[in-house]
Design a protein around this nucleic acid. Structure first.
Length: 317
DNA sequence: CTAACCGCCCGCCAAT
DNA sequence: ACATTGGCGGGCGGTT
């Protein structure tokens, strides 16, 4: 029942990044978090103090989730670490690379022909070093199911939170987020607040009203032109501003919001998949299904099944 | 799943 | 000169 999370520390690591997995997973009894290193013992950090690590790479052999919180891109990824990672991965463990941890993930060959996220400043370097890997610097994280990678420091928190969300559901993730005083949910595709507890629009964000407006009529068949007009812009200016401000297109953003809402509803509400699809503005169940599988790697009904039996949402009895 | 339609996205460029 | 806007068009991707 307990899920073992093993974090791989390396010399000179940032203590902040090293602490991210503990900060998120450590809050929940569901997880057991431990730190390991290639060479156990006293490990220097870049924060002016050392940490003591007592487990070695053999810890990966029993891990359910392995986290590489960062990696010095100038340093070669040692063969034994690569092997330990691939071995854990082949065994079925999930591998998470935060920030520059993607360098280790890529070196282990876990991302060949696939997509990873990393810090934007190092995306080019990573792409050049591993041509078979598609590197994204425009997203907060990517989740391939077995391999999860995230961009810079704060995105690591969002990424781990996302993993909690996957494992234990939206309600638990929201509680953890509240404990950390963190945005309850930032989508991987880009930063965006969610409707619900606490979150509010950033007043310096000129598109705040536009996104807010749309969230209030998620279920309606609003065309891009209507949306743009309601926001006081031409269609072209609207889409352009949207991309520069939010890093995605209006329609993609909207799709993300709809899927998020649908996922919430699947976890916490009754109603057929068809009904939920309609209520979040996806015309038909087939449409929801298609996007759900692409983004989350499961079908809507399977996802609901994964959460319903355990009593997380069993409030009404 | 495939086909056909329809709406979105974004490079390009003229206008402001 | 320079920045921002918005119309156009065609390819792309979503919906049916």
């Amino acid at each position: 029942m307990s899920h073992e999370v093993v974090v791989v520390a390396s010399a000179g690591i940032s203590p902040f990044r090293l602490g991210i997995p503990s900060a998120v997973f450590g809050q929940l009894p569901h997880y057991r978090v431990s730190i390991c290193a290639r060479t156990p013992g006293v490990l220097p950090t870049d924060g002016g103090f050392d940490v003591t690590v007592d487990r070695g790479l053999e810890a990966l052999a029993t891990a359910d989730t392995v986290v590489i919180p960062s990696w010095d891109p100038r340093a070669e990824v040692p063969l034994d670490l690569c092997e330990a990672l691939t071995e854990a991965h082949d065994r079925g463990a999930r591998v998470i690379g935060l920030c520059l941890g993607a360098f280790a993930v890529a070196a282990a060959g876990l991302a060949d022909g696939r997509e990873v996220a990393t810090h934007w400043a190092y995306a080019d370097l990573l792409a050049r070093r591993h041509p078979a890997v598609r590197v994204r610097s425009d997203v907060l994280w990517t989740d391939l199911g077995d391999v999860v990678t995230s961009a810079g420091n704060a995105a690591g928190l969002d990424c781990c939170l996302h993993v909690v969300r996957q494992d234990l559901g939206a309600a638990v993730a929201r509680d953890v987020a509240r404990g950390l005083v963190l945005a309850p949910h930032r989508e991987g595709s880009q930063a965006q607040f969610v409707p619900g507890v606490g979150g509010r629009v950033d007043p310096s964000d000129p598109l705040g009203p536009a996104t807010e407006w749309m969230l209030h009529r998620l279920a309606d068949p609003v065309t891009l032109d209507e949306w743009a007009t309601a926001s006081g812009m031409s269609r072209r200016t609207f889409t352009r501003r949207f991309r520069t401000e939010l890093g995605t297109s209006p329609h993609q953003w909207l799709l993300g919001q709809r899927l998020t809402r649908a996922k919430d509803l699947l976890e916490s509400a009754d109603g057929t998949v068809e009904t939920i699809a309609r209520s979040v503005g996806l015309g038909t169940g087939a449409s929801l299904r298609q996007h759900f599988v692409r983004r989350y790697g499961t079908t809507p009904s399977a996802h609901r099944e994964a959460f319903a039996p355990r009593g997380v949402a069993a409030v009404s009895g």
